[in-house]
Write a protein that binds this DNA or RNA. Structure first.
Lengths: 232, 232, 232, 232
DNA sequence: GATGAATGAGGGTTCATTCAT
DNA sequence: TATGAATGAACCCTCATTCAT
């Protein structure tokens, strides 16, 4: 499917609006999330989604229009879920260091709790963002993040805790990278490094390192970054 | 294809004599690298590879057996290429801080120069490493890395430059994460953050940040990590 | 659907009371006429008919049983409409030449005014008349035509205006042919002859020629056929 | 399929040009001609064509690209066949009256011998000529016809046999109408008129009437049109 | 050994029709 | 009775793979 066509996808949905039985819709979405995240967009099979969700295959087309639109719906719902985990509002009320730490931790745990999102994003990148481009909803969810980080950062600067000159986009990219790469690339990494990276012990270690790394990066005094000091 | 079947792949290759046209083999490999990295394993088409390599489709099967085996060959060759960029031997001769910095930079640039590898790895992870698992060659290439990093690290420890307690596996995972995530996820990130992450300016900035982040993480004195000081 | 099955179509119709909404029935029929004549039986979509008639899809099945029965109903109503245009009763009161001329003209104009019939007939012929065969009503509508023509013809013979030996079936077939072919085949003809055959000018010309051709065919004196003389 | 898309049909065909086994192509074309003419474009099934031609279904796509392109190929070959029957070159050498008569007869017989063409044209008209529009070849075949008729007509005018003022496009449309309508609409006509129109006797009668009607239409002296006089 | 032709198992999608409220 | 939801059989088309020169 040419990406240009995605825009004009018919989102018919069954009937006009009285979405009575949304149980089917939810079931499809859940099954599709599994299938797409396990096999990628191209590897996923609509038949399998029908089977997994125990709805008739045609219902999928009734509810979502086509495979591309279904994928987008799955993607949107997964992104939404991650953003719910990453609660920035709460974070804004905290001490800057603690706030950044919280943000990193909630991101880390959000990915861990919803690894589907990582797989879905991976697949979406293979397709050069063709689905996501057509989604106005999602963009709004995410353009608040740099602003949130920025508020914390500015406060940290004022009290002399943070180094000047840090770019928030860069910072966010770094956070997301180290919070998700070990999940998205777990199989190749585990094989190449000959260590299972997804054991509980390893994940705990990683969570600590991830937070430390970010904080050491932005704090003037690296000792402030050590996790043990955060609760003081 | 079930991953269990991959093992029994027939790697016939054309006859005994390793005859004249290993040019065909190379052409197929090059074309397949492009196709697989652009479309992923499931999105890639054998027909396209034949077309791109100007080789009869049948030759692909002659040389590589089947699509899975071809993918593995592509993967192996790409990993090999990256490891050639990441020259650890030279790095071992350097000052620990400079050595780590060099390693990070060569990794960063290696990924930038060969983004196919990132895409291929992504695809391979979707398939849970089913191809890579069957490759004895590749594992050996990579199990030297933690050892290399460890040598540098130990020297850094001895001279009091590095913090104790850093896990080399963790360190490597962090390096690879921040050196490649912005490439593999460039499309979704760019859409969500509404900024093109692959401009030259952004990439330069990222390269600096990546090195700084790693060095600040392991150095006792974070000032030693600033790039400007490295050439002293 | 196998033609043998058509006979046993259930013509349920909605219940006993011929209740309030025969408006629905009419709406369905109108929409189905459009859809079937535009797309043919196989190209027509029941969904579209429901949409066009603003009636629940199920009602279509309530009122007409199935797609085949609906098509037959459409066909019958269209044939009825044509026969109403072709008023033979009036024609019987006229001078033979004028009568034939009127008959031809009313046929010509009837087709022009209701081109759906032509399309429907075309579609029905593709299906070898399988629907029409099951309709006892329609046959009766049409078996009066040769008789009507025959009456006019006999009168024309008696007064020496018409040539002997003309077969009424043949005559009718000829009339219908030249009155409808340019409509049913307008697209291919227009493309092949590279002229739009449905312009007003062309249609006027055709109407004249059609009448002339039929009259010259049956009149002893071809000059009597010229349209200008008819009103004398 | 939107008609606009038809133009960009890929006409791959197997391999580059060394069409070795054209037996498959011919078999597909023959089977497709039957299927399309019996069921119409929308009613025709690619599976059936594969079955009838005893080729693998995919070969159809190898040779013709898709259903639309296959239909066009069938249409072109059928039109070509008709034009071969309608040999105008020979006709041009004849006496005008005999020439027209010959042309009409060859058209009549051409249709009778290849009734598929009529069905195909019918189907193409349902689709508003969307396939034919994209065929440059066919147009050239047909734009010679009015010229041919015109040459005969002009010679007939000069020797005072033909009436002035006859439009060649009109004439051709009339000829085609009365030569094919009884075939394309045989089923509905036979049912409505309760007479089988395709018996040998009826067809002979029709052939005579068709020729007579055209000649009486254009000859000054209608007696010259009677078939029995033509051989004098 | 290299080429064009063939194969058959799905893949996404659509459709007429029926359920269930 | 009329509406939205569901059903399953096909339909067109594609793909990895193998034959047969």
């Amino acid at each position: 499917m040419k990406s240009s066509e995605i825009i004009e996808q018919k989102k018919r949905g069954p009937g006009k609006g009285k979405l009575k039985s949304d149980r089917s819709r939810a079931a499809i979405l859940a099954a599709a999330t599994k299938e797409f995240s396990q096999k990628g967009f191209d590897g996923a099979r609509v038949d399998q989604i029908a089977l997994r969700s125990k709805v008739n295959k045609n219902s999928i087309y009734m509810y979502f229009g086509n495979k591309d639109a279904l994928f987008l719906a799955v993607l949107e719902s997964a992104y939404l879920k991650l953003r719910e985990a990453q609660d920035d509002l709460h974070v804004l009320t905290l001490d800057p260091i603690v706030g950044i730490h919280e943000f990193v931790r909630s991101t880390f745990r959000g990915f861990l709790a919803a690894p589907e999102l990582i797989s879905l994003a991976v697949s979406e990148n293979v397709h050069r963002g063709s689905h996501l481009k057509t989604s106005p909803n999602i963009k709004q969810l995410y353009n608040r993040i740099p602003a949130t980080l920025d508020q914390l950062y500015k406060r940290g600067l004022q009290i002399g805790e943070f180094r000047p000159g840090i770019d928030m986009i860069e910072l966010y990219v770094s956070i997301v990278s180290i919070c998700s790469y070990h999940i998205s690339n777990q199989h190749t990494l585990s094989i190449l490094l000959q260590t299972n990276l997804m054991t509980e012990k390893r994940l705990d270690l990683r969570e600590q390192n991830v937070a430390t790394m970010i904080l050491r990066h932005i704090c003037v005094d690296p000792e402030r970054a050590s996790v043990s000091n955060l609760n003081n």
